[in-house]
Write a protein that binds this DNA or RNA. Structure first.
Length: 446
RNA sequence: GGCGGCAUAGCCAAGUGGUAAGGCAGGGGUCUGCAAAACCCUUACCCCCAGUUCGAAUCUGGGUGCCGCCUCCA
């Protein structure tokens, strides 16, 4: 069964055919490192992690590159505000990103290139665009001439006329067209800069991904991804540059994930309605956060609220509780058919444009079968882990709590219920829950 | 103003032509010293109005409502 993916460029779901199977090149736009990641970032990277896992299961050999934008206006502003060097700031947030995403069980990319490590590539790209008459120089700035790409707007489905009719386009008299975008920006005093044929300056944002894709994966890749907010202008501008510079389609498939919303509005830094992963991790285990982010189809909006997160947590715990309750027995021959059918449907759902909601419903059906027949927990574990779930190490229970739980069990055994209840209350007031099982007990975090 | 998307039970959410997956909450049971957890059972005229079709949540047209992009943004 072929893998099907929605392609933002063609606006339809189609069979995924790699350029040179079984290899798949995947480039995902990373974060600008000047602050902590919020849930919206997490959703994007969980989505592409899922895509990568499903492609791998399908038999593809995925090479995944994801950049860090480590130079731009906001970074410079934040570094000045914090009175620290730009590189110190960016390293801090690269480390924070790595830590935050690791907790979500995201498989690291093959390479995380830094924009600042690829300035010569970008300069070369810009030179090439100038030579091809797709860019022009004005007083140390270089602009991309969008008219050089006669299909400009094809990705975001915008026509140049419509864009010109908008009210929100920045007026800059240096530009031939208000839609032209900056490739090289001259540096002001005190700003970091790199030398170039047009003077000291720094690259424009839309250029780095093109240069890094070309240098690390080649000028024509299988999949280019990112959040839906990157479609325009970022990805549109990348596409235009790549087409003009390399005369290739650049990326065969463009994959964009939907937003996380709060009170029905997009979560974003500028609106201030964001929740950082770090804050959420304080109240919710990371594996539940991952489950919450994966439950909804990647292209639909995902409404965040503490209630929604709790809902996901309850559902997830129901799924994982089976590992504590049902013995790990192999599936007998006469039950292979129903179990395998669920497994097949699970993968079919994922191959169908990552229909993870459908796939997870199969996990719950499997859960039901496991309880009914008291076997097959390994299949649930295998399927869940293949999409990055069920990875949490057993939660750490402090030794004194463990000891109290053990004492309670001893008290229970001699029917000293008063002591047992007293210990349970103490354990609960410490934020843990002790639960009896047919053959013993377990302690978990509250 | 331009372009695009979405509308399925109290809530979340699949399904894209053959009469509605799954989860949460609610109700009812089972188990249990207590408590918790868990398990089983149970809950839908698919926003409205036309149309196409033997048949539509699913296709077409028209409404209504919500959201997104057009500016940095995952």
């Amino acid at each position: 069964m072929p893998m099907k993916l929605y392609n933002s460029l063609t606006k339809e779901v189609s069979d995924f055919c790699p350029i040179s199977p079984p290899n798949v090149s995947l480039y995902v736009c990373g974060v600008t490192v000047y602050d902590y990641c919020h849930l919206g970032h997490a959703r994007a990277y969980v989505t592409f992690d899922l895509l990568k896992r499903v492609l791998s299961h399908h038999g593809y050999n995925v090479t995944h590159i994801q950049n860090f934008t480590d130079i731009d206006d906001k970074i410079i502003a934040r570094a000045i505000e914090r009175k620290e060097p730009v590189t110190q700031l960016t390293q801090e947030f690269i480390d924070a990103y790595t830590e935050d995403m690791e907790k979500l069980n995201i498989i690291p990319a093959n390479n995380y290139p830094l924009a600042t490590d690829h300035i010569p590539h970008m300069v070369k790209l810009i030179q090439s665009l100038i030579e091809k008459n797709a860019a022009y120089v004005v007083d140390g700035s270089v602009f991309f001439r969008i008219n050089a790409d006669k299909n400009y707007g094809q990705l975001s489905n915008k026509s140049i006329g419509d864009l010109n009719a908008g009210h929100r386009i920045d007026v800059n008299h240096q530009k031939e067209s208000p839609l032209d975008f900056i490739l090289w920006k001259p540096s002001k005093d005190d700003e970091p800069y790199w030398p170039s044929p047009w003077g000291n300056g720094r690259p424009g944002w839309h250029t780095e991904c093109v240069a890094m894709v070309e240098s690390l994966l080649g000028p024509h890749i299988d999949i280019h991804g990112g959040g839906a907010d990157l479609k325009f202008p970022h990805h549109e501008n990348e596409l235009a540059q790549a087409k003009c510079a390399y005369h290739t389609p650049f990326a065969n498939v463009w994959v964009h994930n939907g937003f996380v919303t709060v009170d029905n509005l997009k979560m974003s830094k500028s609106d201030g309605n964001f929740f950082t992963l770090r804050d959420i991790y304080n109240t919710t285990p990371a594996d539940i956060v991952r489950f919450f982010l994966m439950r909804t189809h990647y292209r639909s909006p995902l409404q965040y609220s503490t209630a929604a997160l709790d809902d996901a947590g309850t559902a997830y715990k129901k799924l994982t509780s089976v590992f504590d309750i049902v013995p790990n027995a192999p599936i007998p021959d006469h039950l292979q058919v129903p179990f395998n059918e669920i497994k097949t449907l699970f993968w079919q759902a994922l191959y169908n444009d990552l229909n993870v909601s459908d796939a997870i419903s199969k996990l719950f059906e499997l859960h039901g079968l496991i309880h009914e027949h008291q076997c097959g927990t390994n299949m649930l574990l295998e399927l869940g882990q293949s999409i990055g779930l069920f990875y949490k190490q057993s939660s750490t229970i402090p030794a004194h709590i463990e000891s109290m739980a053990k004492d309670r069990w001893e008290a229970k055994k001699v029917k000293d219920f008063q002591t047992a209840d007293q210990l349970r209350i103490e354990i609960e007031s410490a934020g843990f829950i002790v639960e009896d099982k047919p053959d013993g007990y377990r302690v978990r975090t509250g």
